[in-house]
Simulated scan of single mutants.
Amino acid sequence: MLAKLAPLDPRDTADLRPYLATVADPRSRRGRWYPLTCILTICACAVISGARTIEEIAEWGQRAPDALLAAIGARPHPLRRRRSPAACTIDRALCRIDPHALDTAVCAYLADRHSATTDGDKDTRPAHQAIAVDGKTLKGSARTDQPRRHLLSALTHHPPLTLAQSEVGAKTNETRHFLPLLQGLDLAGCVITCDALHTVQDHLKRLVEDKKAHYVAVVKTNQPTLHAQISALPWDVLPLAHTRSEKGHGRRESRSIKVLGVADSLGGICFPHAELALRIHRRRQQAGRKQTREMVFAVTSLDAHQATPAQLAALVRGHWAIENSNHHIRDVTFDEDASTVHTGGAPRAMAALRNLAIGVLKVAGAVNIAKTTRAIRDLPEHALPFFGIGHEPHLSGT
């Protein structure tokens, strides 16, 4: 498994530690033994090795040999032996740090890793970088005196790398955090995909005019006027523009798309910068179950010269795929929904570390995240090259 992943040479990979060093240490200088960057690096290495809880992160550190801890930055004790931080030390650090600062550092690292892998391959780079805006609830973070934490993220479609993440309190607060989430990103020429919750005229108008980006937005009945206008378009007389069928996991899916120009000069729909309306028809047949059908409408600022029907279908499909390529992995492989971490900034910090692990593994070429984490679980030194950290005594065997 490790032989198929590239790059594994730390000299070819950006070092994570300078990014983590930008996170301020909230702890008192008195009695502080482990640098915060060292603790966060141990957390990153443990999570990419499959650690799901703070206790498992501490156990990973306990298995790490002295030379590995030295490479990470752990200070030696008076007897010249290095020890990794205990679970209580890691827990206190994650609870007290600024989770926004950690998110910013992790997202900046992933963005730089992504640009380093795509800038040199201009022939295969997509015409428009697709970024999905989607939310996720940390179900295990709720307590009787506090609701569940809810995070809103901006992720690239392929590979699914988190470029920005913020805590919004509840799903109903996602809308007003949409523009602030994207404020710090360079979105010129990018395509933002979003579900019906974020199909808001003012937000998408500012996205096009201020950020010079495009959008593909799903339309549902929460926008009754827009939904009525799109559903009333003459779809029945239009031919299918693109179809695709897939089989796998005991089910068969087929998707077809129709595309219609809706420029204002043609008396189209009342939505800012809308150029095309889409109608996607999905059919799913699972073994032993009744066939299900679904009709979805969408609107985009891309015109027919900027995207083909197949590319538009891929953009919509790519947004739906975020659920499997990121959220499902966090819930199943890293057991995020079962995590009971709930104090301070720890829930969001753990989510950032999981995003970091998924993004780094995807950039390295991992197809099956669970299988890859199992391959490096019992060999702590194998985690370091993924973050650009050299460890000479053990790198020769990887």
Rank of each mutant, 00 (worst) to 15 (best):
V200P: 04
T300C: 13
Q306F: 14
L240A: 10
A314V: 03
L5P: 04
A277M: 07
D195P: 06
W235H: 00
D9M: 14
Q286I: 06
C194A: 09
W320S: 10
R83S: 15
L266Q: 13
R330M: 06
P380E: 01
P65H: 04
H305R: 14
D25F: 02
D98A: 05
L36W: 00
A64H: 02
C88M: 11
D15P: 03
H77F: 15
D210P: 09
K122N: 04
W320M: 07
D121N: 13
E174H: 01
V341L: 07
H157F: 10
A310I: 07
R289C: 06
R330D: 12
I57E: 06
R282C: 08
P234R: 02
R206W: 10
T221K: 15
A64F: 01
P234D: 10
A21F: 00
A14Q: 12
V237Q: 15
T193G: 00
D202L: 14
A375P: 07
L68I: 11
E167L: 13
G169D: 05
A67C: 07
P78S: 11
K211V: 05
P35F: 03
T22R: 15
H214L: 13
S153D: 04
R377W: 00
A108S: 13
A188W: 08
T137I: 09
R30Q: 11
I39N: 05
R113F: 09
F178H: 03
Q311T: 11
H198D: 02
V332Y: 05
R255G: 03
G268F: 01
G73T: 07
A364H: 03
V367Y: 04
C88H: 15
D186L: 10
L233C: 03
P78Y: 15
G169N: 07
C270S: 10
A154N: 08
A277I: 01
G365P: 00
V237Y: 11
D303K: 12
H157N: 07
R113S: 14
D123C: 15
T104E: 04
A298N: 02
I369T: 08
R317Q: 09
P380F: 06
L302F: 14
K212N: 13
L2A: 08
Q129N: 05
V200M: 02
I358G: 01
P26F: 10
M295R: 05
F271S: 05
L353N: 06
Y215W: 02
H158A: 14
T89E: 01
A130E: 12
A6G: 12
R81F: 09
L110W: 05
K4E: 09
L312W: 08
A51T: 00
A44I: 01
A58M: 06
I54L: 14
